[in-house]
């Protein structure tokens, strides 16, 4: 009997612990620039916040946003430890263009390829650019669609809120 109650108590605790580990990252597998399969639910940044931003080569506000983010990225990383994952939703017409495009523009982000919009669909992204900010536990704390000059500043303020 004692054993049973111990098991029950352990089970109860385990379930409660499990409940706290749940992140907002969907169980979707897409590829990175090396062609490796990456399960998005495993993305993390050593407990630091991270950004997931959806873009496409044909989306000019997205390109502007990425240019602006790349200019401030080194400072952001130094001050907050944030990491940016950049998800291209270009379809197979552009798959081989992404790496030369990103390198040619000098963007320092980790690139993921969502060729058939599996991730975009599961995160309800309809129009790029769409940017999500995750805290260190993988919970969405802020999201935003569209880009206008200076919008990266609001994102940075949100990152600072998590770090401080």
């Amino acid at each position: 009997m004692k054993k049973l109650s111990t098991i029950l108590i352990l089970a109860f605790l385990a379930l409660n612990v499990m409940a706290q580990e749940k992140s907002d990252l969907p169980n979707v597998t897409i590829k990175n620039l090396n062609g490796e399969s990456i399960n998005v639910s495993e993305l993390s940044n050593d407990g630091n916040p991270f950004v997931l931003t959806f873009w496409a080569t044909w989306c000019s506000p997205c390109v502007k946003e990425h240019n602006a983010l790349s200019e401030v990225y080194d400072d952001w990383v130094e001050e907050t430890g944030v990491k940016i994952y950049s998800v291209s939703i270009d379809d197979s017409r552009s798959t081989p263009k992404i790496k030369p495009f990103v390198e040619g523009k000098g963007w320092p982000f980790e690139i993921l390829l969502d060729v058939n919009k599996d991730l975009a669909r599961s995160m309800n992204v309809s129009v790029p650019p769409h940017t999500f900010l995750f805290d260190g536990d993988g919970k969405i704390v802020y999201q935003h669609t569209g880009y206008f000059e200076g919008a990266e500043e609001e994102l940075y303020q949100e990152i600072l809120k998590i770090v401080k």
Binding site: M1, L4, S5, L8, I9, A11, F12, L15, N16, M18, A19, Q20, K22, D24, M123, N124, S126
Partner: peptide
């Protein structure tokens, strides 16, 4: 003992239900 067991079961089921709800996510657009 039975009372203790019942409490444990109820709290475990409750805990499960709670974690069931906490683990469930609904999103949409």
């Amino acid at each position: 003992r039975i009372l203790l067991l019942t409490i444990l079961i109820v709290s475990a089921v409750g805990g499960y239900a709670q974690s069931f709800l906490q683990n469930s996510q609904v999103n949409g657009s």
